[in-house]
């Protein structure tokens, strides 16, 4: 898997993503947000966590208008897989590749801890190596992860099964207590209508090896590698 890891000024998860791609046998390349014509050579585009442009105005707002984002939008529209994690998720929402918005955590506190998320779907390019209903331990680190959307959008997301990850307790139940930021319906990650763009607040790239507390994020990257391999085999 040749993966572009986009770096914005203020990104801090780009090195973690780079390493995560390497750990599953992929070939990562850093792509600076001002590089033009840079994405043609890649099979997947990854938007990292961090605080692009200092989160000024709104988290992800200014990054979403960076030169590279036009190409990310084109890449996504052509069906290429795009992963946005944390600030990357915020940026994808601001770029209208995903619906809704991420606002200030309900408790107003920055949340940095391991949380549990339940895998709601295993038929996306990002989740084939998980089991449906599997409960993962993955860290979060955000102040603006409170997923909001209008009622119609939420109904569509739920109706179309586009919620991929949901915050749950140890028993796998989506309770208020297990919700770290006040997100509607305990939403931790969603996909677009076509299923090739995912945004999530938890950091799977920081849960790649048991030595750092969890390797539950790994399957997201192996799923992506696997889906690219099978789609290439299918088109051959």
């Amino acid at each position: 898997m040749k993966a572009a890891v986009i770096s914005f000024p203020g990104s801090n998860g780009d090195y973690d993503l780079y390493k995560a791609v390497q750990l599953v046998g992929g070939t990562p390349t850093f792509v600076w947000h001002r590089d033009k014509g840079a994405l043609k050579a890649y099979e997947a585009v990854l938007l990292p966590g961090g605080f692009s442009y200092g989160d000024y105005l709104r988290a992800g707002a200014i990054a979403s208008l960076s030169p590279i984002m036009e190409e990310v939008v084109a890449f996504a529209k052509a069906g290429g897989p795009v992963v946005g994690i944390c600030n990357g998720f915020q940026t994808l929402c601001e770029a209208h590749l995903l619906p809704g918005a991420l606002i200030r955590n309900e408790a107003l506190r920055f949340a940095s801890k391991h949380v549990r998320v339940r895998v709601e779907r295993t038929d996306t390019a990002f989740t084939t190596d998980y089991a449906k209903g599997q409960v993962l331990s993955i860290p979060i680190a955000h102040g603006e992860g409170n997923y909001e959307a209008d009622k119609g959008t939420l109904e569509r997301l739920e109706g179309e099964g586009r919620v991929v990850f949901r915050y749950v307790d140890a028993a796998g139940v989506a309770t208020d207590a297990a919700n770290p930021n006040g997100s509607w319906h305990n939403i931790a990650g969603i996909v677009n209508e076509a299923g090739n763009v995912i945004g999530m607040m938890p950091h799977p790239e920081r849960a790649m090896e048991t030595i750092v507390g969890s390797a539950d994020g790994r399957a997201l990257f192996t799923s992506l590698v696997g889906s690219l391999t099978s789609s290439l085999a299918g088109s051959a």
Partner: peptide, 9 residues
């Protein structure tokens, strides 16, 4: 419309 406000929120 383009940048200063997010129509969702």
């Amino acid at each position: 419309r383009k940048l200063l406000a997010n129509p969702v929120t």
